[in-house]
């Protein structure tokens, strides 16, 4: 890994974002986390020259965004020649079977339902952190 993996988090709920970040940090993941609370800004960032040319990244995606659905972002990312290799972790409250299937069909790599129970939530995020620490994210070329 020449460049450290950058984590792009698209999450409209600041509380959630903070909790996710906290728990990732508690899992000893120190990668840079870039947070967006709306889809438009996230897409703008993801498709900027800076990201397209700079290093590997991992996307944490919430589906219920104020300006668009997370699946739109997923579709765009997976449809892009350069970004499509970036792992996308969908992290959302929705546990609808149809929605989960749709996300995997669109190319999402992991789908995690946010548990309401905080212990489970923290546990899930820490495991995700553990997962992040071992996965190899491909370079973005």
């Amino acid at each position: 890994m020449t460049h450290p993996v950058k984590i792009v988090m698209v999450e409209d709920d600041h509380g959630h974002a903070k909790l996710i970040e906290k728990n990732i940090r508690r899992a000893n993941i120190n990668n840079e986390i870039k947070h967006f609370d709306e889809g438009g800004a996230a897409i703008e960032y993801l498709f900027s020259e800076e990201v397209l040319t700079n290093g590997p990244l991992l996307i944490l995606l919430d589906l219920n965004l104020p300006d668009m659905s997370g699946t739109d972002i997923l579709e765009k990312v997976k449809g892009n020649e350069r970004l499509r290799r970036a792992p996308v972790v969908v992290l959302t409250t929705t546990d609808d079977k149809v929605e989960i299937q749709r996300c995997y069909d669109l190319g999402c790599n992991v789908y995690i339902t946010k548990p309401v129970d905080y212990e489970s939530f923290a546990g899930a995020i820490r495991q995700l952190g553990l997962f992040l620490s071992v996965i190899q994210a491909p370079e973005i070329e």
Binding site: G15, H16, L19, V116, D117, Y118, F121, A122
Partner: peptide, 13 residues
């Protein structure tokens, strides 16, 4: 559910 995640999360915090 979404706000509930926060309520529970920050209660734990």
């Amino acid at each position: 559910r979404a706000p509930l995640v926060n309520v529970m999360g920050y209660t734990s915090e």
